[in-house]
Design a binder for these strands. Structure first.
Lengths: 193, 193
DNA sequence: TATTCGACCATTTTACTTATTTAGTCGAAT
DNA sequence: ATTCGACTAAATAAGTAAAATGGTCGAATA
């Protein structure tokens, strides 16, 4: 017997899959209901509206990224390795999640406020994770950073900048090349004085 | 008496202005003709099609950026200053050109091939400009870079990543903050060993 | 009590037809 | 060499009726 939250999660996963094909507008509640093997009204028992399901999917996407980043962090041992793993895990996870963002391209503007809200929240968390890595590296003697807080913001900002072309379905093939560049910047810097 | 190329340039400038409001599809040749104070057929005397005008506008946008970068380069004296001026000039120019790219959002996919072609060409030139700055800095003793070629690609890639949010009309207010981060990365590096 | 369901409604979207606009042409005028 | 008005075929917008869709409700089920 599944409890309420488990059913909700199942529905969210099903919806995530469907939204990833043709976006928000072109997905119907009937589709979600059928794919969830439920009556439409049952879906409405768990979620108040299509919008609410959509928002749950967006949160799910964000939490998947977060989970992958935490996993990468735990697997790596040294701070330098953590940094590298973070960058790689982030980009490869975003590559997977890109389906969804690419599909909701047309619906993006009408959900901008919510999506930005979620992303800002998770950005803060990512910056915090990054700063922890950097602080550990400094204590470790592996890194030499003046302002870890600013550096964390700089790195996460750069990573966010890199992910966007992914969403719009361009230049995916260039991902590895871009990653090399980013890691090169982070590890060797570009201009040393 | 204006010669042919001057008239063409006038038309392109007028068209650039009009395309920047509502994009490609929602702009009519009659509008362009009226705004150019010409008959529609006269426009067709100078350009074979609406598409051709549009492409000329795209090239114009790219060449404006290039001109601004060259100007910034000439004004700065030291390589470090050139680097900083390049970044600032690029972002502030892109902020101005963002109108256009923001307006053609809906038409972007149908002109993707041409736009990408133009951008790739100018990217190459920008990377070359950047490498010249870096090489000069190394000779100067101001910079210490292992691979100036790779560094140039890395910097330009990072700048390109940063410009995209601008096109979609988001986070413009964060531009200065983002710029600070980028300059911080470039000048101080992030992780020094 | 917690959950599922079918029947139902108001609103939105689609499919289709018709009217208008638009990209592009052509021959004459300057 | 350049401009223009009149013209056409094709694309787009406007209008409308039919279908689909988001969401509700009360009864049924477990």
């Amino acid at each position: 017997m599944l409890d309420k939250d488990e059913v909700k999660e199942t529905i969210v996963n099903v919806a995530r899959h469907i939204f990833s094909r043709f976006g928000f507008k072109k997905t119907t509640m009937d589709e979600i209901a059928i794919a969830s093997r439920k009556g439409k009204s049952s879906i409405y028992y768990y979620f108040a509206s299509k919008e609410e399901i959509f928002q749950a999917v967006v949160e799910k996407e964000a939490s998947i990224l977060k989970a992958e980043l935490i996993k990468a962090n735990l697997e790596a041992v040294s701070p330098a390795q953590k940094l590298k793993m973070h960058v790689l895990a982030r980009m490869h996870t975003m590559e997977k999640l890109a389906n969804f963002y690419s599909a909701i391209k047309d619906d993006y503007l009408s959900h901008l406020d919510f999506i930005e809200k979620i992303r800002k929240k998770y950005d803060q968390e990512e910056i915090q994770m990054m700063e922890n890595i950097l602080v550990e590296g400094v204590q470790n003697g592996e890194f030499e950073i003046e302002d870890t807080s600013l550096a964390a913001i700089a790195i996460v900002t750069a990573l966010k900048g890199l992910e966007i072309p992914l969403f719009w379905g361009m230049e995916e093939k260039d991902l590895e090349h871009r990653l090399d560049n980013v890691i090169h910047i982070l590890f060797h810097g570009v201009v040393k004085r």
